[in-house]
């Protein structure tokens, strides 16, 4: 049998916009591998890909929407979540995914994050956390570890970062997980699980930024961060999110922390329609 299948063809190819390659990400960046996990998760979930919409904000991770061959929206800085909410409420058949960075989702978009989680809006949020603003050249943000250096914390960061899983869990997210991009299998499974779970699912993915954050914090090669993840990560499924703070000398606690049921925002909206129409009749 002759086959035209090229050995270079990967499972991810059909969902990548090949006409946009090469991408802008640096060698050693964690975003690409996380996108690979996302695409494999879509494939393995068996979901109708025409019904998946991908929304990103601004930043290095914000470029994900531009590379994945789905209905995809590259919006403004921090605003992917309310845009995605409107999209999902406008057509409940859509499976809405937000893929964006820590600066975009946690800093400028922080208000939307807590409120979208609180409402339990049906969507999956993948937050690539590389501890800094990459696109603008490596500045500190609300996820930058204490004392870490960046281009706007040249004397060491004096601010305490958010414990992101704790924040979103406290806000009302019904699915919360954290993995590093080294945990490729777990991340893929986790994304697939989140994609098929109703309500607000949030996955934090730690990924290296060797060009900026790494270079300024003694992890100048991508491998340095991966070794750091490998040596310090501990899987603790079901861990209390308040105990998963990232500290400079503590472990990187990864795993699925929250997986609960609560009515989704769409269901609550239908409740309003039912109540209003019952009152009318």
């Amino acid at each position: 049998m002759t086959s035209s299948t090229k050995v270079e063809e990967y499972i991810t190819d059909s969902l990548l916009r090949q006409d946009r390659m090469p991408h802008i990400w640096c060698p050693g960046c964690g975003i690409g591998p996380a996108v690979g996990c996302f695409i494999r998760a879509i494939e393995s979930s068996g979901l109708d890909q025409d019904k998946i919409a991908l929304i990103s904000g601004i930043g290095c991770t914000g470029r994900v929407a531009g590379y994945v061959k789905l209905d995809s929206f590259h919006t403004t800085h921090g605003r992917a979540l309310p845009f995605a909410m409107g999209l999902g409420l406008g057509n409940p058949e859509l499976n809405v995914v937000v893929f964006s960075g820590d600066g975009d989702l946690i800093a400028i978009g922080g208000n939307h994050l807590i409120h979208t989680a609180r409402r339990n809006v049906d969507m999956t949020v993948i937050c690539l956390n590389n501890f800094n603003y990459g696109m603008t050249g490596g500045q500190m943000g609300p996820t930058t570890p204490l004392n870490a250096r960046s281009n706007t914390s040249p004397y060491g960061n004096i601010e305490y970062p958010f414990n992101v899983p704790y924040l979103v869990a406290a806000s009302g997210a019904t699915y919360v997980a954290r993995w590093t991009m080294l945990h490729a299998r777990q991340l893929e499974w986790s994304i697939a699980e989140a994609l098929t779970k109703p309500g607000f699912s949030f996955i934090e993915v730690l990924g290296p930024c060797p060009t900026l954050y790494g270079r300024m914090n003694k992890m100048a090669r991508g491998m340095d961060s991966l070794n750091y993840y490998k040596e310090n990560s501990v899987v603790r499924n079901g861990a209390d999110p308040k105990d998963v703070d990232l500290t400079s000398d503590g472990p990187i606690v990864v795993g699925k922390f929250v997986d609960i049921e609560r009515p989704t925002f769409w269901e609550q909206c239908q409740l309003v329609i039912d109540r209003a129409q019952a009152k009318k009749d």
């Binding site: 929304i55 929206f73 919006t75 403004t76 605003r79 309310p82 845009f83 995605a84 909410m85 409107g86 999209l87 999902g88 409420l89 406008g90 057509n91 859509l94």
Partner: peptide, 11 residues
Amino acid sequence: NAILGASWAGM
């Protein structure tokens, strides 16, 4: 942003 998103869903 929400009204932009809804519009892209056809609303």
